[in-house]
Amino acid sequence: MSETPPDRLSSNPNSPFYDEAVLMRGVGILFNGQEKTNVDEYCVSEGWVRLVAGKALDRQGNPMTIKLKGVVAPYFQSGDAAES
């Protein structure tokens, strides 16, 4: 597996950009210099993230998301950072 996260990744199993192996490894997201923990999907090349918006659900029962544009910097979380 490469040392850089993919350009686009989704945590939704119905998405074509879902990759369970990468998600199990642990991916962190820096969005405009701030760490985000509620990211549902991101795209580095297009510069956007989809964030889960509270507990609201759409008609199909999926979490509602909002799309924000900015600088996206994904990284693999190390074992030490996940524990602290």
Rank of each mutant, 00 (worst) to 15 (best):
E35F: 09
Y18G: 00
S11N: 11
S10E: 04
V71K: 13
R8F: 11
S10M: 02
N38M: 04
K55C: 14
E20N: 14
V52Y: 01
N38G: 07
N62F: 13
F31G: 07
N38E: 04
D19C: 08
E41A: 07
G33Q: 02
A56E: 15
E41C: 10
Q60Y: 12
P74I: 05
P13I: 00
G54I: 01
S10G: 06
I29L: 01
G70F: 03
F31E: 00
Y42I: 09
V22F: 00
D19L: 09
S10P: 07
Y18E: 01
N38W: 03
R8I: 15
L9M: 03
D40Y: 12
G70T: 02
P16Q: 06
N12F: 07
S15L: 05
V22E: 04
P63T: 07
Y18D: 02
G54R: 07
C43P: 08
V39I: 10
I29F: 02
E3M: 13
V22H: 07
D7T: 12
V52Q: 00
L9A: 00
K67C: 11
V72L: 04
P16S: 08
F17K: 06
N32A: 06
P13S: 01
S10A: 07
Y75T: 05
P5K: 01
Y75S: 09
V71T: 12
A53H: 12
P5L: 01
E35R: 13
D40P: 00
T4M: 14
N14P: 02
F17V: 08
P63M: 01
A81D: 15
L30T: 08
S78W: 10
L23T: 05
R8H: 12
K55V: 14
V44Q: 00
V27R: 10
A73R: 11
P16W: 03
L68P: 01
V44I: 09
L30G: 09
G33C: 01
V52P: 02
P6D: 04
L30E: 06
P74Q: 03
I29K: 00
R59T: 14
I29G: 06
L68A: 03
